[in-house]
Nucleic acid binder design. Structure first.
Lengths: 205, 205
DNA sequence: GTCTATAAAACGATAGAC
DNA sequence: GTCTATCGTTTTATAGAC
């Protein structure tokens, strides 16, 4: 059952697939489930997607593009790379209740697939790689060329870890606390490129 | 195909289930897969476990007990609570190649199940709760009563996050780097109960 | 493009001989 | 306790009418 959504059916299928894969997992979600959720007869699904894997890839590809769009938005609207990182981390505060219940949709796919064989696994992984590459640039712009990649990975690791612990302990506050730790740390690292006066001497890591 | 293992069949089934659930995930592993791996006819599986869920619970229960045994070993052999924490964190260095490929067996079950309904989900979650409770005691013994639980959660979040990122980027070194960060941090927090001379003034978090 | 009907295979689980 | 044979269901996927 879907909202009264007059979108085209292909888009509706991708929407429903993304939602149900997130809620119930990749393997636990059948094409019949997705078709029912999108209010489309199951036989018609195969007109748009030849296999279940194709649909999963389309749903994941859409998430990848949403992330890419966010990076552009951050670049356009926030000048300071540190503030961009804080904003990116803070995003997870807006979804912490949902993620504490269902986990991270990207992390779930990575967990559910074989990173070495699966094309879907590689696509989902590339979303994290995209984040790492983006965050790395921000840290480089703060003058942390040497540690940029390490910091970038550590940020997403902190987020992902907090989501798992929040889901495990059924407490979305765990995500909030960990995000606060990350933001405090981000606020604390010095801007080694441009000294704007408000930079302290504390060292994070 | 199993090693020439003359264990009783129930134990062999639990072993094979734990291995295959870790490698391929809960839903992607069929009872036929497990029976074949344990070299036991599929019809015989149901003599030992009434349902697939029962077998999954038995396999997870065994992991929980292995963790519990580790805490006892750590208490018996290491006097300093800080050193106990470091040893516990360092454990993941011994499995980082395996975990970078297949993910954490506990994290995988938590990711794959519904934390609110599933009995298996609650059992897997309780393994992390056990860790948090154990680590909390260690931090309390270091005099960090107020932050003990927060620190305990943060440690496991860091470990879990690094495992996901390592699997995503297919690089077990990511786990090693994050464990190093955690251990450096553990080394840095002051022992507020007993001052032994080597305590600095840096603050972690 | 849309939908019904159904094929083909895999799955969890059971019955019952030994 | 052990194992074979199989049931009933669900799954992905296809064929073909409209």
């Amino acid at each position: 059952m879907n909202l009264p959504n007059p979108q085209n059916k292909k888009e509706r299928l991708i929407d429903s697939a993304a939602t149900l894969f997130h809620r119930n997992g990749l393997m636990a979600t059948s094409l019949a489930d997705i078709a029912r959720h999108a209010d489309i007869p199951i036989g018609n699904v195969y007109y748009y997607f030849k296999t279940k894997d194709d649909l999963a890839i389309a749903a994941t590809q859409r998430r990848k593009e949403q992330f890419a769009a966010s990076y552009i938005l951050l670049s356009e609207n926030i000048a300071d790379p540190r503030a961009r990182l804080v904003e990116a981390v803070n995003y997870y505060n807006t979804v912490c209740a949902e993620y504490a219940r269902y986990g991270c949709p990207i992390g779930k796919i990575i967990s559910d697939t074989d990173s070495e064989k699966d094309a879907l696994a590689k696509l989902a992984s590339s979303i994290f790689v995209d984040f790492v590459n983006w965050a790395k640039i921000q840290f480089e712009q703060l003058g942390h060329e040497e540690d940029a990649k390490k910091y970038a990975i550590s940020v997403m690791a902190g987020i992902q870890g907090s989501i798992i612990m929040a889901k495990s302990m059924q407490n979305s506050q765990i995500i909030a606390v960990e995000l606060e730790r990350l933001i405090t740390w981000l606020d604390g690292i010095p801007n080694k490129k441009i000294q704007l006066g408000k930079v302290g001497i504390r060292f994070g890591a």
